[in-house]
Design a protein around this nucleic acid. Structure first.
Lengths: 229, 229
DNA sequence: GCCAATATTTAGGCTTGCCTAATTATTAGG
DNA sequence: CCTAATAATTAGGCAAGCCTAAATATTGGC
């Protein structure tokens, strides 16, 4: 059979570009620069330009791209990116809840599998888990129609006042770091009392251990909190 | 980072060639011909020759290949093929047992995912399932060390005598066909009484429905039985 | 408003794995 | 045992995605 050659299909690589654009655009949907994409994806800048040109040209038109001006997801692109994100977070939840993975290992596995599961798999996993709204890092799982709740949390590093907060989510980007947070009881849902809000040395207390904790900027940046109820 | 370029790594494609060679070699470990591989993999013969040459040349040496004489798995190749087969069958079992997939859908999903799961995933799934020995089609799941029980069953089409048998396994290759077998109660473990052994029209009775069943050659070839206890 | 620093794009190449068409081996029949 | 049919290989190409190096835009500082 001749290759489908449908412009530019849903390959793993395309999915990864779309996901990266989604992440870099943020809630305000800023244009993402080629270099930021190259950074995030770990490829050369030229590769990014190349792919963006292909994506922009493709009849599927996942992106709106202008030379030297960065890129933005189209409606179709956003839909696809959110679908992959949904896959990712459902898989993470599944690995954690059903297969008892250690929290810090779910991301890497999900990153690989998200590209290859079928609609049926997605549906069955969601059903098994009771259509969860959040993954084990506390991140919101996009609904099937792509709708996703807005984030009302703030990184620990940007906290304005001291006080008591609930851990909303922790970053999945760095496994060893995540493991350290976990070891100190900083997981989604945990209560933290922040007693010193310096940018470089955050002091807090968790409800688990009553000892004071010092968080480096690194660690603190990986934690988002919201007001405690 | 420079590409690993380690001769010929464990790509999806390589895995599929190794699996196909394993299947075509059979228990007697016959040499597999290029054309049979091309057939099974749905690629051109030239593609097979090409890949076999690469595999044979690679330092990993997964195969023993001789021009015009077909190919055989090396110890390393067999090890790898059995690992992928283990992945495949564990995933099938998992989809069936844990995610409640319809039997006829597990194969296709497993065929895709088998290449991408980690060792951890394999280990966790096996644990969750209690280290199963058989997949839902009745096929033996290779152990971690590659050991696999010998098959003591025979296809319905090669039955010498009439009598009562236990369904050992049913083929996973053709989903619609599998669905028809399932609908007639012919699934692993079912008891069948074969009353007429003609090659083209097999007549039998299952313990479920007491009506007589006629199986076409197609269907019968997809069923393996063993003596009933 | 110009120029250097930085960001981006173009040009040209590479590997993987596939393809078709043409060629060469092997094998089976008379 | 030779030839025709069949099987396998070689030759030459293509698309996807990546790369480096060279060229070109954009931008911030003076």
């Amino acid at each position: 059979m001749p290759p489908r050659h449908q412009g530019n299909a849903n390959t793993e690589s395309v999915d990864n570009y779309l996901k990266a654009i989604l992440a870099l655009s943020g809630p305000e949907e800023r244009r993402a620069s080629s270099s930021s994409l190259a950074d995030r994806l770990g490829v050369a800048q030229a590769s990014v330009t190349n792919m963006l040109q292909k994506l922009a040209t493709s009849p599927l038109s996942f992106v709106e791209y202008e030379r030297h001006r960065g890129v933005l997801l189209s409606a179709a692109g956003k839909r696809r990116a959110l679908e992959v994100l949904r896959h990712h977070r459902l898989i993470e939840t599944f690995l954690y809840e059903v297969l008892d993975y250690p929290l810090e290992e779910v991301h890497e596995e999900a990153e690989r599998l998200e590209h290859f599961i079928s609609e049926r798999f997605e549906e069955r996993v969601a059903a098994k888990l009771g259509n969860p709204k959040f993954d084990p890092h506390g991140h919101c799982i996009p609904a099937m129609d792509g709708k996703m709740a807005k984030q009302a949390s703030v990184p620990l590093t940007e906290l304005q006042e001291q006080g008591t907060f609930t851990v909303d989510s922790i970053s999945d980007q760095d496994a060893p770091l995540l493991k350290r947070l976990k070891a100190q009881g900083i997981i989604p849902g945990a209560r933290v009392h922040v007693t010193k809000g310096g940018a470089d040395d955050l002091v807090l207390r968790t409800s688990a251990a009553s000892k004071k904790l010092h968080l480096s900027r690194n660690l603190a940046a990986a934690v988002r909190v919201r007001s405690a109820h």
